[in-house]
């Protein structure tokens, strides 16, 4: 497997408001790489700069040090105006909030990305319908976001990114705000979709169980300044049954190892 995404000695500190003294580093000397088709999970305590890390990779924010290589080419910039969010649609980003457009129906929200990219045709529409079917949203195409449940909104946000097929998808605790049962269902849906296409996914969470259930490999972030504190391969074979993940062999040891590393 080749490294698709390389994060090299990444650092971030925010500009200060008052004096001239530089603020402390939020992220420092953070390095890791992601292989093509890998499902990588990143676990960290809250306030560990997880969202900041994904914002930098998605280029909605600048890095203060280090560089990011995509397919071996550097895509780093320090100038906020030179940022290219999504790097020409090569990186998809599913954020914590679903950020659905309230004036578009479910179907139109899913088609939004294709629409702005000028890729709206019969084939892409067909794919959108398939995805809507696959996550159980059939029959809700005409509903506005405020008429959907939290779980349905999450599914809509998820397939809105999947439908335009970016090579890498970043996910920032996308299932954090829903109840436990819905979350398990969403995780199962995500794994099923991922099995169909085997995209490269970087999934950030504070939930160790979720990190194990979903990932091929889990990284553990330290507290600020963030760096990689540990790395664990997840020895649970796929396909996995998320609902009974606790009972699967290998889960308990991995959980204990990760828990010890997360401070």
């Amino acid at each position: 497997m080749t490294a698709l995404l390389d994060i090299n000695k990444l650092g971030k500190r925010f500009p200060t408001r008052h004096g001239r003294e530089p603020s402390s580093w939020v992220i420092k000397d953070l390095s890791f790489s992601v292989a093509d088709g890998e499902f990588l999970t990143i676990v960290g305590p809250s306030g560990a700069g997880k969202s900041t890390l994904l914002n930098i990779i998605a280029q909605t924010d600048t890095a203060s040090a280090g560089e990011i290589l995509l397919n071996g080419t550097s895509v780093t910039t320090r100038d906020p105006r030179a940022l290219k969010p999504g790097i020409d649609r090569r990186i998809g980003y599913v954020t914590q909030d679903d950020n659905l457009l309230p004036w578009r129906s479910t179907l139109d929200n899913v088609l939004f990305a294709l629409d702005v990219q000028g890729k709206l045709n019969d084939e892409s529409r067909g794919r959108a319908r398939q995805l809507i079917q696959a996550v159980g949203l059939a029959g809700f195409e005409k509903y506005y976001p405020h008429e959907l449940s939290g779980g349905m909104r999450k599914r809509t946000a998820l397939i809105r990114t999947l439908v335009y097929d970016p090579p890498i998808i970043l996910m920032d605790e996308p299932f954090a705000a829903v109840d436990a049962q819905t979350r398990t269902q969403l995780q199962a849906d995500l794994l099923r979709l991922w099995d169909l296409g085997r995209k490269t996914i970087v999934f950030v969470t504070h939930d160790i169980t979720e990190a194990i259930a979903l990932g091929d490999r889990a990284l553990v972030l330290s507290k600020q300044p963030s760096r990689i504190a540990a790395e664990h391969a997840i020895p649970i074979p796929r396909p996995r049954n998320v609902k009974d993940i606790f009972a699967l062999p290998g889960f308990a040891e991995t959980y204990e190892k990760i828990r010890a590393d997360v401070q």
Partner: peptide, 24 residues
């Protein structure tokens, strides 16, 4: 702001953002 950021990641042009997100 988050809607604007989302649209940029998806690849929407500034004109499109003005028209669809800000205007609506």
């Amino acid at each position: 702001r988050r809607l604007i950021s989302m649209a940029r990641v998806i690849g929407a042009s500034e004109r499109r953002i003005s028209r669809e997100i800000i205007w609506t």
